[in-house]
Structures are given as C-alpha cells and as structure tokens.
Design a protein around this nucleic acid. Structure first.
Length: 588
DNA sequence: CTGGGGAGGGGGCCC
DNA sequence: GGGGCCCCCTCCCCA
C-alpha cells in the first residue's frame, strides 16, 4: 500500500513536471509567435509609412515638375519686378499701393518709404523719376495717380545686404471693396543695423493718395495683432544673407473665397524661383486678374487658354483700385486652371529657396471645378489635367467644406453654360453635376464602400478604386510600345494603339466613314440625324459639336485668346493665328 | 484674308 | 474590357 502511495506520488510529480514543461513550451511558442507577429506588424507599419512617404513624394515631384515647366515658360517672359540687392533709399510719402503685374514675381506693395531700410518700392516711369540712387530709379507716385497700370515696372529693393529685414504685410479681402480708401499695415522689422529713429515696426499706411487728395478714410483698419503668427513664406536669397518674410493674413472672411489670400497665398505657381536668378519670388497669385471684359490691353502673350501658365492679363479698374496685394480673381474664363495648384497647395520656399515645400494639401474645396478653361497647365496635355481632376475630385469630397458658390463662377463662365448635350444650361460634367447636386461623391450608395483615399469617392470594388486613384497619383502603368505614351487604364492603351494600327472599328451604317472612337462615331452620326444638342444661351443657335459652341461663344464675348506676338493681332482660334503667322510672318 | 462653323482625332475618366 | 461621355486640338470649307 505504501509502495502504491509512493508510486502515485511519483507519478503525480512526473505529471506535474510534464505539465509544467508543456506549459512552458506553449508559452514559448506563444511568445515566439507573438514576437513574429510583432515583427510583421512593425514591418507592415514601416511599409505603410514608406508607401505614404512615396505617395507624398510623388505628389511633390509632380508638383515640382509642373512648376519647372511653368518656370520655363515664365522665364521667357520679361519680368517687370525685381528685388534689388541693395538698399537705394526711398523718399518719404510713398504709400502702400497695390502691386499688380503680369509677372509671376509680383509681390507685395509695402509702403516702407520712411525708413532707410525700405526695401519694397513701387516704380513707375509714368509717375516721374523719383529718387535716383545708385543707378536705380525709384519712382514715387505723385498726387493724382491712384492707379497703377499693367506696364508699370516695379522694383523691390531689399535694402542693404547685411541687414536682415522682415516685411510683414497685412491686408484684408475687404480691402478690395474698400477701394482706394483702404489701408494696409506694414510691419517692418530690422534685426540689425537699424536706425533707432526708424525702429518703428508698425506703420499704418493708407493706400490712397491721402497726402494730396481728400480721400475718404479707409473703412477698414487692420489691427497689428493680426500680424502675429508664423510667416507664410520665408524667402531667402541664394547668398543666404537676407530674409524677406511676408505675412499676409486674411482678416476678413467674406463670402467670396476667390479672394482668399490664405488660399491663394503661395503655390507652386506662386514661388517659382527663376533658375539662375537670385531674385526671389514672393507671390504670384491674384495679380493674375483676368477680367472677361477685356479691352484689348491684354498681353499679346496672354493667349487665354493657350498659355497655360503665363496668362495673367491684369486689367484693373482705375476707378476702383483695390488695396494691397491683389487678391481678386476673375475665374470666369477658366483661370482657375492656370494656377490650380497654387490654390490647393500651401507651400513655402525652403530656406535655400530651392523650391516649394508642400505643407499641406488644402481641401477646402472651394475651387470651381471648371475644366472648360485651360486644362493645360504644364506639358500641354495631360499633366495639368491630372491636377484639375485632382482638384475636381477634392471637390467631391464630402468631408470637405465647400464654401464656394460654384455657380458663381460658372455664371461667369460662358463656356460652361451650355456645354452639355443633355443639359444645355450647364453641368455636362458629371463630377460637377454630382458636386452641385449635393451628392458630393458618387460613392454614397451602399454598394460603393471602397473609398478613394484622395477624394473619398466611392467605388464598388477595390480594383476600381485602385484604377481611379491613378487619377490622383499620376500612375500610368500601361505604356505604348510604339510611341512611349502611357495610360492609366489598359483600355485607353488599347484604344490608343488604333492610332498606330489604323484600325477604325466603328463604322457608320449610313455612310462609309469609320472611326477609331465609338464616341467619334456617335458624334459623327449627328451629321446624318441633324441633331444639334449644343445650344448657345445667348442667340439660341445650335451646334452638333461642343467645340463649335465654344468657339461660337467667343463671338458673343469678343474673346480673342490667340494673339500674334509680332503684330499683336488677335484671333479666336489657334489655327487662325497659325495661318496668320505663316502667311504674314513666315512662321512655321 | 478673315473668321465662323463643320467635322474628325484622340486622351481622360467613369460606369 | 467595352461603352460612353467629356474635353481639347486640329483641319477644312466657305461666306
């Protein structure tokens, strides 16, 4: 019996040992698996971060590529604004004026004249020779001149090269409405070499000619407290000696977001540093006023939609000169497209002025989704389109606050009024229609649960989302072996290859015409049916072709977008201009 | 010669 | 993958 008890005890102890061993092994396995899982999770997280980083880099690289493209175009245009290296002095009594120019390097009108450190000056030969110092002509606007013309030359004097100065400018959108009576504040900071008597940092300067004329008091006076905050742009010369900090802050948030300087502040279009130039662009934004009531004063180079990046006909109403930086933009002719990226990207130059650093992608969605203007932002075809579509997609984001009254722009866009064959009074663009119709995305239905990470648009399956997102990422995995063109969708490539093969599978059953596009056939068949779905809203004339209507609308608007650079003669179409130049100027 | 209009080519994108 | 729509571009004809 005793032996039996001992035996049982031994067995029990053995069982316990075995159990403990088993538990230990199980725990070890669990720990190992846990470690493996953790490692995998960590790796996945790293991959995710890497992908996000790549995605962001892709965006930035695309943005830079576009900017480079624009810079090339802009570089060929004479800039009327210069930032001088040395301070040349400036007379007292210079007022803050609104700068406006076609140049992309238009900055701020900063009335810093009373200070030796004045560095931003307005110069206009028309106003007479001001104070000549050091070979630089600084012009002071005389009494009686309340306006600045397009052709005014503007000189920005950066002051002495040894001092670091900050010019902070405040203006408000309602300054536009304030007309000439508005004012702006200029905060000027000097970090070294300041004359104590000029150490005032804040000065309120009336933009009107109050010194000589009894202009009404400005309706708006900005508080200097609004100056505080981070500078929106820090620009540094290549010599790294001078820093010009400009802050613009919107003090009045009116309903018209077109003039929102925060939104238009600095974009890739706004800060293109001219290669090889030491001049630093500060702003290029709303000076690109393009009034539809063109009076022929447009820059011949400004060919409307023809010039994707350099078209900023800036026609101001002399009697209603707004204030400060020009922030009004007339998008009535699709000008949004010209600097769409500047609208949606907040950027600033890095310290070396090497390029834009995209801080964030603004998704305010207050940009009119016009694609009727100029879709050519960059290379003349698809590059700009991507951004437009990206912007357009942003507008469809239900999470995006849409402050913009889209119809406001479209009302001014004669082209978009009657473009749709089914809807002669607007919204032929489906995305636009969706946005306008309140369905911000096409994926609100239950079966469209796969959302685009960029625009939140919904799709029914993951693959469709992936294809759609190529719109945003610019990915074009399908390339043509014969012409190196690339496409985001395989169907597009297949269709494109008919260009090389000559295949035209879509034949008209009423005639012998055949087409490579099904839509071309359908469009062609209107020849037989007499269908003219595109009607002019102004003269009730109808067209079978959308482009016909678009061209026809120019008859009403008087738009002449294509100007000859040799004789200045304007044409409504590029082909007319080309023929003219071939015949008149022997330009091929 | 100019410019309005007709028509086709072709890419982007969505369903 | 195909169909379809939208858009821009270009060429051509003709008053």
């Amino acid at each position: 019996m005793a032996n039996c008890m001992v035996f049982h005890t031994q067995i029990a102890s053995i069982m316990e040992v075995l159990a403990n061993t088993a538990v230990a092994e199980i725990c070890k396995l669990v720990d190992d698996d846990y470690a493996v899982f953790r490692l995998e999770i960590t790796q996945s997280q790293k991959e995710n971060r890497g992908l996000r980083r790549k995605l962001l880099e892709m965006k930035v690289s695309r943005e830079r590529a576009e900017r480079t493209m624009r810079e090339r175009v802009l570089a060929s245009r004479p800039s009327s604004v210069k930032i001088l290296d040395r301070y040349r002095g400036m007379a007292r009594g210079t007022f803050c004026r609104r700068l406006r120019s076609r140049s992309p390097f238009i900055y701020s009108s900063v009335p810093v004249a009373p200070f030796p450190s004045a560095r931003v000056q307005m110069c206009n030969p028309e106003f007479g020779l001001g104070h000549l110092t050091g070979g630089h002509r600084n012009f002071v606007k005389p009494a009686g001149h309340n306006t600045w013309r397009d052709d005014q030359q503007i000189t920005l004097d950066e002051g002495s090269g040894t001092s670091t100065q900050h010019v902070i400018m405040i203006e408000s959108a309602d300054g536009e409405a304030a007309g000439t009576g508005g004012s702006c504040l200029v905060k000027q900071e000097r970090t070294e070499g300041d004359d104590p008597q000029h150490s005032r940092e804040i000065q309120t300067v009336d933009t009107g000619d109050h010194s000589t004329t009894a202009m009404p008091q400005p309706r708006t006076r900005r508080s200097i407290t609004a100056v505080s905050g981070m500078p929106n742009a820090v620009l540094k010369s290549e010599t790294d000696k001078e820093t010009l900090t400009v802050t613009k802050r919107l003090l009045h948030t009116g309903s018209d977001h077109r003039s929102d300087p925060e939104r238009l502040r600095l974009g890739p279009l706004g800060c293109p540093a001219v290669p090889g130039s030491e001049y630093l662009p500060l702003f290029r934004q709303s000076q690109m006023t393009d009034h539809s009531c063109g009076d022929g004063d447009r820059d011949p180079l400004d060919t409307g939609s023809d010039d994707p990046s350099c078209s900023y006909s800036t026609e101001l109403d002399p009697g209603n000169m707004p204030l400060g930086l020009e922030t009004q933009t007339d998008m009535s002719r699709g000008d949004w497209n010209r600097y769409s990226s500047s609208v949606y990207y907040e950027g600033c130059l890095d310290k070396k002025g090497e390029g834009l650093v995209v801080d964030e992608v603004k998704v305010e969605g207050d940009t009119p989704p016009t694609r009727n203007g100029d879709r050519h932002l960059g290379d003349g075809h698809s590059q700009g389109r991507d951004f437009l579509d990206y912007r357009e997609s942003l507008e469809t984001n239900p999470n995006v606050t849409n402050h913009c009254t889209l119809h406001t722009f479209r009302d001014g866009d004669p082209v978009s009024m009657s473009m749709g064959p089914s809807d002669p009074h607007g919204s032929n663009d489906r995305a636009r229609a969706q946005a306008q119709g309140g369905e911000a995305t096409s994926g609100n239905s239950k079966d469209k649960r796969f959302l685009c990470m960029f625009c939140n648009k919904g799709f029914s399956c993951l693959q469709k989302v992936e294809i759609h997102q190529r719109v945003h990422t610019g990915e074009k995995p399908f390339s043509c072996t014969q012409c190196q063109m690339r496409f985001a969708q395989t169907g597009d490539l297949k269709r494109h290859q008919r260009v090389h093969t000559g295949e035209k599978p879509f034949g008209c059953h009423l005639c012998r015409a055949s087409f490579s596009h099904s839509s071309s056939l359908k469009r062609h068949q209107r020849v037989h049916t007499g269908e003219k779905p595109y009607s002019c809203p102004q003269c009730e004339k109808r067209f079978s072709h959308q482009h016909h209507l678009k061209m026809h609308l120019k008859v009403h608007t008087g738009a002449r977008s294509f100007a000859c650079t040799h004789c200045g003669k304007s044409f409504s179409e590029r082909s007319y201009l080309r023929i003219h130049q071939q015949k008149k100027h022997s330009i091929l």
